[in-house]
């Protein structure tokens, strides 16, 4: 998408904003500050409420508000996390965390592996129907997941792989490929032709050009695709609901089943939900720039 090169540009524009701010007296800015702070509070509070609730025992949760923890820090307990990691009736969040990793890592690598090659062909090779096929891929990006579920489930049942990790990898890989190819191809076609030409003169065939020139130069786009695909798979509920089994259920499925089992078991639900959010939040805060670029690039998917 044309919207990918976002964050660096916003930093470059900062001096302008600072200048503009200087021209006006601070109090004329006051309403703006109030609105922004209010918005920030509204956007932060729900997550903090979840975290605080998950750190209190069920008696405290049901008798006083979560913010009580601020002046009664001795109420803080990790017992909910302890309970939820080990067992919750179905799969413990510990196993579910592992399942999420075992599902997400291959389901992130495969689309990049297959997608990068295809993207190179679409960008730099000539073959019959190239443009028509690519246009088809553009259209496929918005096909609803619901269109695949029933026949895929039948195929998996026939093959006897329903409920296994490969079933989830295949679904996520195939469904993620059109967008991955699209983004990688658009990036690769921007690589200067002279680079490819000189590599060819040095005696490289397509494989040589692909591995030595294209792949290293495509790293930013690959990082973006990796992040959105990782986030998409990690946070997916629908594919996991249909194709995962009791022993392969990722965290989204376990959290959802906790909601179903204990509608008011806030201590368990909140702890489980927070565990499921932890890794994406760490990625967000450590790789913020790539993260924003990746999610922006991948936003058409669904």
């Amino acid at each position: 998408m044309s919207t990918t090169a976002v964050p660096s540009r916003s930093l470059a524009a900062l001096p302008d904003a600072a200048l503009a701010e200087k021209r006006r007296p601070w109090y004329s800015q006051a309403p703006i500050h109030v609105v922004i702070i209010l918005i920030s509070v509204i956007w932060l509070m729900p997550t903090i409420a979840l975290l605080f609730t998950s750190l209190r025992n069920i008696q405290n949760i049901n008798t006083s508000m979560w913010w009580t923890l601020l002046w009664k820090p001795h109420e803080l307990t990790l017992e909910n996390y302890n309970a939820v990691v080990h067992s919750t009736g179905t799969v413990g969040m510990g196993q579910a965390f592992l399942n999420s990793l075992l599902i997400t890592i291959p389901a992130t690598l495969f689309p990049i592996l297959f997608g990068a090659g295809a993207a190179y062909a679409f960008a730099w090779m000539r073959f019959p129907l190239r443009n028509s096929i690519f246009l088809l891929l553009v259209g496929l990006q918005v096909v609803p997941l619901q269109m695949l579920l029933i026949p895929l489930l039948q195929m998996y049942t026939t093959l006897g792989i329903n409920g296994t990790y490969p079933a989830l990898w295949i679904a996520h890989t195939a469904f993620g490929l059109p967008l991955a190819i699209y983004i990688l191809r658009n990036f690769m076609s921007g690589i200067p032709y002279e680079l490819l030409e000189s590599a060819r003169i040095d005696g490289n065939g397509h494989l040589g050009i692909f591995f030595r020139i294209i792949l290293p130069l495509t790293t930013p786009a690959i990082a973006a695709v990796a992040i959105f695909q990782f986030m998409w798979v990690w946070n997916d509920l629908l594919i996991a609901l249909v194709f995962s089994g009791p022993s392969t259920a990722p965290m989204t499925v376990v959290v959802r089943s906790l909601v179903g089992q204990f509608g008011n078991g806030w201590h368990l639900m909140t702890a489980a939900a927070f565990i499921s959010m932890a890794l994406p939040l760490v990625i967000f805060f450590s790789l913020q720039r790539y993260f924003v670029t990746g999610l922006t690039a991948g936003s058409v998917k669904g």
Partner: peptide, 16 residues
């Protein structure tokens, strides 16, 4: 930040 949070976890957050 909420973009990093799954819709499932968002569901729990807002149920709360």
């Amino acid at each position: 930040i909420p973009m990093a949070i799954s819709a499932t976890a968002t569901g729990v957050i807002w149920r709360l």
